[in-house]
């Protein structure tokens, strides 16, 4: 596959979150505000790229039987470093992300790319593949976070986008958008929108009702 395809495919057509359903936990949890989502996306990008490059570099030295343990140890070490760096330089945001930075370890995108790509390819394509997947993940995070923050508070990164009633505007903030259930529903609607645009991603029905077999 060409380098360009490696980079652009995971954005929409092979998106790790909406199509392969990987890394959803953090995609839902950190998207109440855009600043936490951007921090999380940056942390995830750094870990994914470094993990892919390191694993791909030493791929011939890793014994097949214990490769999962080796991969997890590498990823966990990188996450620990990122977590400590965030606590040192962005303490406020790292408190709001609570355990979700640590949970990058169990983010299936990283292990998935390590298993499916980095173990079989040289470092340079692995780097590009990791960047593409990180961008696809970040894109979903940013879209969901923008929707939730604007509708939930009327602001975006501290700037007023929709003037709220409190400040003499017309917009009544939807408190629901700040709560957990809205994350599920917004992501569900995003999947709906994406699949309406890319009908090839639509799932086959589990069961065809009688008399509707011929229907598309």
């Amino acid at each position: 596959m060409s380098t360009r395809r490696l980079l652009t495919d995971p954005l929409v057509d092979q998106n790790p979150v909406t199509l392969h359903l990987l890394g959803i936990c953090s995609a839902l949890a950190v998207t109440t505000n855009l600043d936490t989502a951007l921090t999380m996306a940056a942390a995830m990008t750094v870990v994914l790229v470094l993990a892919s490059v390191i694993i791909s570099t030493i791929r011939r030295l890793i014994p097949q039987e214990i490769r999962l343990i080796v991969q997890i140890t590498i990823i966990a070490t990188l996450v620990m470093v990122i977590d400590l760096a965030l606590q040192a330089f962005l303490f406020d945001i790292s408190q709001r992300l609570s355990i979700f930075v640590s949970l990058i370890v169990t983010n299936c995108i990283i292990l998935g790319r390590a298993e499916a790509f980095a173990m079989r390819n040289p470092p340079w394509p692995s780097l590009v593949d990791a960047l593409g997947n990180a961008a696809g993940y970040s894109l979903v995070l940013v879209v969901v976070a923008i929707l939730r923050e604007i509708l939930g508070t009327g602001d975006l990164l501290g700037y007023s986008v929709l003037p709220t009633v409190e400040n003499g505007g017309w917009f009544e903030p939807l408190g629901f958008m700040a709560l957990a259930p809205s994350a599920f529903i917004v992501l569900g609607l995003l999947v709906w929108a994406l699949r309406a645009l890319r009908p090839s991603q639509i799932e086959a029905p589990d069961y065809a009702a009688r008399g509707t077999e011929g229907r598309p």
Binding site: T18, L21, L179, A180, P181, S182, A183, F184, I185, L187, G188, L189, V191, W192, A193, R195, A196, P199, I202, E203, P205, D206, Y207, A209, P216
Partner: peptide
């Protein structure tokens, strides 16, 4: 839900998210 007439693009994962959202609302 297998028997429900869900819009094609929402079928499967999309609907699972929305249902989970409603469950989460109930549990809150």
């Amino acid at each position: 839900l297998v028997y429900a007439d869900v819009p094609p693009a929402l079928r499967g994962v999309g609907m699972a998210f929305v249902v989970t959202g409603l469950m989460s609302m109930g549990f809150s």
